[in-house]
Write a protein that binds this DNA or RNA. Structure first.
Lengths: 335, 335
DNA sequence: CTACGTCACGTTACCGGTAACCCATGCCGC
DNA sequence: GCGGCATGGGTTACCGGTAACGTGACGTAG
């Protein structure tokens, strides 16, 4: 079997004895041809092993692209990975192709990616960041395609928004910890300057504590990216400064599990000596000796809902601008 | 600021007073124009906010595409996520754009993805599966672009291969476990029918045990996907059938950590009562009470090396067909 | 019998960049 | 003075689909 140049519409048209326009009509469906012609065209397309040329289609007339750009903070994250997996699978099933990017929580990276994406004239864009640079917004406007902001709810989305309120997540956990009678409460997470979702949860957390007459007693902010090990040593550092904490809220479950490991190694009992809570509902949390108090994020559903909302918009079907995907606070037994 | 239609080469050409061909030459570099012309063209392009149209470029003449297709088993995997992150970042830095797909270890999924990818006439393809369907190979041949097979080493790669030997990984761990004096050794992992990398490691593992006069005493195969929790209950099931095991080799670290959690919950001591070993070198393994015996996979380096090899090939620079990225057996203290 | 609509298809032009080719100018050596 | 050649461009054709519009055959209402 030698390499054969892939046939185009013209090759099919020649074989059947019609014009390539008729072939185009048949293969895209929608009428304007007889059943007999359709059968012959389909047979010929199959025989020749026709592969549609999306490049040519998207290039010729805009509005026919099936390309969707998706930008997430990182690709090696359990949570975003699940969202991406589900988003991509749903888009693929509906006939769309995914171009990815990672912005690492830096608006400048997102901006560079968006500009590269614009060169491909995609049908839609999915973003997961909270803040966009002015140039990003300008590029998006020039592209004039549907934009879906995912992960956090936006009060004023550019276009579509699917997610939940990180602020409320933090608030809710604050109330849970306060109701459990904890008094000296610490926080461990990433830097606040970067407007990450974790920082938003912290704001909600502070508000919740405030309403209960409490405040964050001590906090540890890391420049390292969150993970098991950073949770481990951040806990060590925080307790060195504030030994009398009776609860710690972690930016995510991985850090909480790392923290738990440190506490266990030191003989500090959870939740007797100190309570811990995480965020995200990662699978790893399910195998701890005690079930971790955390917030479950329905990542798979989020990706699916986002993909479906986007495709609805692309097909001019009615869609809500803002779709809330509910998270769930899992009481666990570590607080 | 209203939406403005993005200018093309012609708009720049009109502004400067040259032909669009000259503008094309300047923007792609390579000569055929004066320094004066170059300056004027660049200024005009900047002023108009020119965004190159990769769609048109790739469509017009093949060989000018900057699109690379990457297909991994899953997008929500710590290991593949890291590889993807590094691969994508390196490709982006070198001016390439990434289209992704997930095949979930099913050749049919990979085949469907490849066909969708072919419609975009990419510059190259990166695969991570071990087995490809006949139709996949046929489509790849028709595309006639560089193909890089990553993750496992291929004895006869389609084109380029970057990775390491899973077989050797399994063999090496078998020798390590045997040398530690373990006799009744179990295995926990996924199904063998699917030609996954885990199955290849198991083959090497069997061979290593065989050379030491041993064999796999009992094994537990799951249809569920690997993870913390499946490691937890697979350990329970395996030990119910074979209580006298003195070592277990897990398909990956997540399962091993899950297994460790089960053993701890049951009061079974590691490594005194039973030894465990994982694979992958996941970060989570670093926070166990005892460091997990495992094989470290340099995911970040793997992605970077793969991207660089691919780009070298695309630029007609010399590349080795097969590049080995070394893994490292971490002795740890759980065997 | 004519006017008009519908169906099924053909024709034409076009998207924006690029390879291949052509052309004018100026400088050089002989 | 003339041929040769490098430099700095311009011209043309083309990639493979698709929107817009044109056309002939046929059916049908007035």
């Amino acid at each position: 079997m030698a390499k054969r140049p892939n046939p185009g519409l013209q090759a099919i048209a020649d074989r059947v004895g019609v014009s390539k326009m008729t072939v185009s009509r048949v293969l895209r469906g929608g009428g304007g041809f007889s059943a007999e012609t359709e059968a012959k065209v389909r047979e010929a397309a199959d025989a020749l092993g026709y592969v549609p040329n999306r490049l040519a289609a998207a290039f010729g007339r805009s509005g026919t692209s099936t390309l969707v750009g998706v930008c997430v903070p990182r690709l090696n994250s359990a949570l975003f990975g699940s969202v991406l997996e589900s988003l991509n699978a749903t888009l693929a099933r509906l006939g769309y192709d995914t171009m990815i990017g990672a912005h690492d929580h830096l608006p400048s990276e997102e901006e560079a990616w968006i500009r590269a994406l614009a060169a491909w004239k995609p049908a839609a864009v999915v973003l997961t960041s909270r803040e966009h640079s002015a140039r990003t917004l300008s590029t998006l406007r020039d592209m004039s395609v549907p934009v879906l902001e995912m992960w956090d709810l936006r009060t004023a989305p550019i276009d579509l928004s699917v997610g939940f309120s990180h602020y409320d997540n933090g608030w809710e956990m604050a109330r849970t910890i306060a109701n459990a009678g904890r008094q000296r409460i610490g926080y461990i997470g990433g830097l606040a300057e970067r407007q990450t979702m974790g920082a938003v949860r912290l704001n909600g957390f502070r508000k919740g504590l405030d309403e209960a007459g409490l405040s964050v007693f001590a906090e540890e902010r890391l420049t390292d990216r969150p993970g098991f090990y950073s949770g481990y040593y951040a806990t060590e550092m925080l307790l060195a400064r504030a030994p009398k904490l009776d609860a710690i809220y972690y930016q995510d479950d991985e850090m909480a599990i790392g923290g738990q490991a440190y506490l266990t190694a030191r003989g500090i009992r959870v939740p007797d000596d100190i309570g811990i809570a995480g965020w995200g509902g990662m699978e790893a949390a399910s195998i701890l000796p005690r079930r971790l108090t955390t917030t479950m994020v329905p990542t798979t559903r989020l990706g699916k809902v986002a993909a479906e909302a986007l495709v609805s918009r692309l097909r001019d079907a009615p869609v809500q601008d803002v779709t809330v995907v509910q998270t769930r606070l899992v009481p666990g037994s570590t607080i």
